[in-house]
Structure formats: C-alpha cells, structure tokens
Design a protein around this nucleic acid. Structure first.
Lengths: 216, 216
DNA sequence: GGATTAATTAAACATATGATTAATTAATGT
DNA sequence: ACATTAATTAATCATATGTTTAATTAATCC
C-alpha cells in the first residue's frame, strides 16, 4: 500500500544532509535527459524529497544551477587536459596520437559511472545548442585548453594552416561528443549476432579515427 | 509611435495564406534555436501574427508539429542519400570517398539557405537527445539509408567487421553534425588575421577527415 | 545559556503553457 | 442561391513553472 505523502518536519533537520551536492547530481541527470528548458526545478526537488525552495537557497536560480552543474565537471576536464599537455610538453616530444589521447582521455574516464555518463550527455547537448548561455559556459571552461591543443597540433602538423587545425580539431570534437553521448543508436543498428564480434574498444576506435583524420 | 495591437478580422480571410507551410518554417527556426521544450507555440504563432489555435488546427499538437518539421527535410535527406547510393551501385564501382561524399552531400546542400541551416541546427540537437521522440524520428527517417551505407562501406572495407563499420560511420556522423550545426565556435577561436588563410572549403575538409578516418 | 546563523518547509505570486471550444467569415459544391 | 466545408479569432481551461516570503527548527558562537 502506497504510503500517503507524509508532511515533513519543519525547520532545520538534525545532522548534515549534503543537499547541495545531491541537487547537482539529480539536476545533472535531468539536464542530460530533458535539457535545460525541459528540466523542472520542482521535479528535481521532488526526486530528492525536498522543497523546491532549497534549489533557490543553494543556487539562486535555474541558470545558476545549470552553470554549477556544467562547470563542476567541465572545469575538471579542462584542467586534466592542460595537465596532460604540460606533461607532454615537458617530456619534450609528442606526436599526433599522443595529443589525441591526452585530449580525449579526461572525457573518456567519465564513461565509467552513471553520473559521469549523464555529464557526457549533457555536454554533448550543450555543444549543439546555439543559446548564449551554452556559448558562454563553453568559452569559460574550454577556451584556454582548446587553444593550447590547437597550437600543439599545429606544431606536429606544421604544413597545415592554423585555421585548418582548428577545423580538424572541431571535427574530432564532434565525433567524440556523439560517441560518448550514447545517442548514436549503435545498439539498435547492429544486429545482435554481429555485435559480439567487436565489443573491442570504443575508445581505441575513436583514437584511430581521429588520428587519421587529423593527419589527412 | 508604436501602433496599438489592432484586433484582427474574424473568420476565414480572403485568398489563401499557405499558413501551414509558414508555421513549419517559423517552428523550424524556433526548435533549432530553443529546442523542443524551449519552443512556445504561442510565440511561434505570434511571429506569424496569427492565433495560436491555428497550430492545433493544422498540426494537432506540439509533438506532431515537431515531427512534421523534422520529417519534412529529414525524409528528403534520406531519399537523396538512397538515390545517390543506388546511382553508385548501378555504376558498378565506388570507393570510400565516393560513399562519404554521397552520404554528406544532401546535408551540405542545406547550408546554403537560412531555413536549411535552421534544419541542420535542429538536426544536430536532435541527435544528441536521448528522448524517446528523438530516437523514434531518427529511426523512421534514417534506419534504412544508414544500414544501406554501412553495408556499402563494408563492401569497400571488407577487412573491417561490420560492427566496426557502424562505429566509424557514427564517428563521421558526429563530426559532420557538429560542423554543420554552426555551434563549433570556430569564428571565436580563430583570430581574424589567421581566418583569411583558409576560408577554403569546409566541405572538402570534412570529406578528407572522414575518408581518412573510415580507412584507418 | 542566550543570541545568531544555517537549513528547511509551506504557502503564495505572477506568469506562461498546451489545448479546447464556440463564434465568425470566406470558399466551395450542388 | 443555398448548404456545407475550410480557415480563422477570441476566450477560456487546467495546469505547470521559476521565484519569493514568512515561519520554523537545529547548529553554532560568545
């Protein structure tokens, strides 16, 4: 028998709840699956069994919540990319493949958890949206590292004009965004019998594809 | 001085208005720029200076309007892809590059008009959304032609398992979706001085990148 | 231990949304 | 010419939304 929606006790609860982190997690999944406009703050709060005003309490408003969700992991990705690039630079020598791996690895790591995959879906959506907010957030999180990688690629592909390096980098980005978003319907398109063949390694496939594309 | 919002004449207007096509056009831009959930039917109607009930009159409801918008050009793309593939098959011989061109050309053509570019933005968004409606529409529009191309690629790349061909095809799709969506911020990232260098041909860049990736 | 601050709920606000219905006018069919 | 059908507006419905405010309770500070 379904228990009647019991009234919660008023006022501050005992102990600590870590509510603001929980809000980020639930919102991340909702933004990933329903998008920014499709996400209702009330529904996010309901999933946590918490009053909707708590979102405003911790994050002021919807836009700010979205920023917090995106930048939480977005900044991590950018930082790890920069760190790997600096390591390669310090080592003195790198090639196209090393750069491709260093660029993609931070995102690839998120594929291992449910919450990480939600971020990757959200991330892919964000990149296909022309809204000002999306552009602003991507600028804030990624401008620095993307420019650094473009210059690094330019160093190992000196025959290409820098504009062409950016073009290719963005083709690589499109490819991995789609692959990591889990929206490519591969499961639907590949017959079961044939699927066993190559469960191989999606990541290595992407690296091979991107390396060849960059060098072409 | 702003003219007061004048009341429109009641009843059927004289002549014909082609309203249902106009609704599709305006909705296409709105879905592209604001997404499905972010699009308000009232705002679409307002842009046309028409009552919101007209959308229900022609398209029943929002979901149905979205389907109509997407399938209008989505089915065109699929049909053109199939036609090109049949032409290649009839000719007897084709290679990876011919297949890549045949697959991408129908979408590339839409880049020439404002309305076509709106479709490409909408199209890219749709592909990164995990919602059931998106999957259903992509299935309806693209399953047949995508399978046909996968088999054709398999014929010219016989050493690759079919599952791997699908993987690569989907990487190529991710790349072109992002490139044609005009959300890749290339204009922002490439400095003005450097931009003049290669305004070259975005389409040829994509073809080179994708051909190399498929063959890799 | 009393005052202050932090974390929570309940209630309400203003507004926006997708959808439906009834009335109205032009076009079409007979 | 008249009846029917097509295309439109105005008004309304029910509901959902993001946000704000006041009340309430626990934790922390002095």
């Amino acid at each position: 028998m379904k228990q009647a929606k019991q009234r919660k006790k008023l006022g501050r609860p005992e102990g600590q709840t870590n509510l603001s982190d929980k809000i980020l997690d639930v919102a991340e999944v909702s933004f990933a699956d329903l998008g920014y406009a499709g996400t209702s703050l009330r529904q996010v709060a309901d999933q946590l069994g918490v009053n909707a005003a708590m979102i405003a309490y911790y994050f002021d408003n919807k836009e700010n919540l979205f920023k917090a969700v995106f930048l939480r992991k977005g900044n991590e990705v950018a930082a790890q990319r920069m760190k790997s690039l600096e390591a390669l630079t310090a080592k003195g020598a790198y090639d196209v493949e090393a750069l491709v791996r260093a660029f993609l690895e931070p995102s690839a790591k998120y594929r291992k958890t449910k919450q990480g995959r939600a971020f990757l879906r959200l991330h892919a959506r964000l990149h296909m949206e022309p809204e000002a907010l999306s552009f602003q957030l991507r600028r804030e999180a990624y401008n620095e590292s993307t420019k650094a990688y473009a210059e690094a690629f330019h160093r190992v592909l000196p025959h290409l004009p820098i504009a062409s390096v950016y073009h290719k980098l963005s083709l690589m980005i499109g490819a991995y965004l789609y692959a990591f978003s889990d929206t490519n319907r591969l499961d639907e398109l590949i017959d079961m019998e044939k699927k066993a063949t190559v469960q191989a390694d999606l990541f290595e496939d992407i690296v091979r594809f991107a390396v060849a594309g960059m060098k072409a």
